[in-house]
């Protein structure tokens, strides 16, 4: 474990807490894409298939449980909670996320470290997470008013992957023959997809104005 990875995991945890706070306290999921939340639930399910077979550490297991539990809770809130679901904008959240899943699955079957079920699922989860934010970014373009919590949620979600890249650089430098191209490339694509959001988020912070993405 290194400081980059610990900070990254805490940032990821913070993003989930911010979203759950928004949904649980003000009972609203306005501006949040259910498609992205469903993709994240799939990402964690496919990535943590080893939760019962490979014990790494208490930290690792506890964090896996937290990410699985919170991602499914958020999907449940947005789909079935009688108040929260009313603020879900299904007419705007129309990204066909199945078109993201199929190419990622095919790619995982073709490019992986080991052709076993768990490993292909693990690889699929990285390719899918790289593009999982797309429905959310499309929804942001469409909904004009982005509230602070939504902006903070997306910022933290993007920042965690950027911090993981620092972790991967650190591990590559300090650990002999630590090479994992699949997470590295996926993580790089994922972070780059947040590029313009980070730019406009920084501008809104610097000019102290509301976050607005260009149409």
């Amino acid at each position: 474990m290194n400081i980059f990875r610990l900070t990254a995991d805490m940032t990821h945890l913070m993003s989930v807490i911010v979203l759950l706070l928004k949904i649980h306290t003000i009972k609203s999921c306005a501006g949040i894409s259910l498609k992205t939340q469903e993709l994240y639930a799939i990402v964690f399910t496919c990535r943590y298939l080893d939760i019962f077979t490979d014990f790494i550490s208490f930290y690792n297991t506890i964090m896996k449980v937290i990410f699985l539990w919170t991602s499914f809770s958020i999907v449940w809130y947005m789909r079935y909670h009688k108040i929260v679901r009313r603020s879900y904008d299904k007419d705007q959240d129309t990204f066909r996320h199945v078109f993201l899943m199929l190419p990622c699955l095919v790619l995982a079957l073709l490019i992986n470290e080991r052709f076993t079920f768990k490993e292909v699922m693990w690889t699929f989860s990285f390719y899918l997470e790289a593009v999982a934010i797309l429905p959310q970014l499309v929804l942001l373009q469409r909904t004009r008013n982005i509230d602070n919590l939504t902006g903070q949620y997306i910022f933290l979600l993007g920042a965690y992957r950027a911090l993981y890249i620092l972790n991967w650089i650190y591990r590559y430098v300090t650990e002999p023959n630590y090479v994992h191209w699949i997470p590295w490339m996926s993580g790089l694509v994922q972070t780059l997809l947040y590029g313009d959001f980070f730019y406009y988020y920084f501008l809104s912070w610097k000019n102290n104005v509301k976050l607005q993405l260009p149409a």
């Binding site: 990821h12 690792n60 964090m63 080991r114 997470p183």
Partner: peptide, 10 residues
């Protein structure tokens, strides 16, 4: 065959 080391990152 040697068991590959598990993925240790989240």
């Amino acid at each position: 065959d040697v068991k590959p080391e598990p993925h240790d990152e989240l």
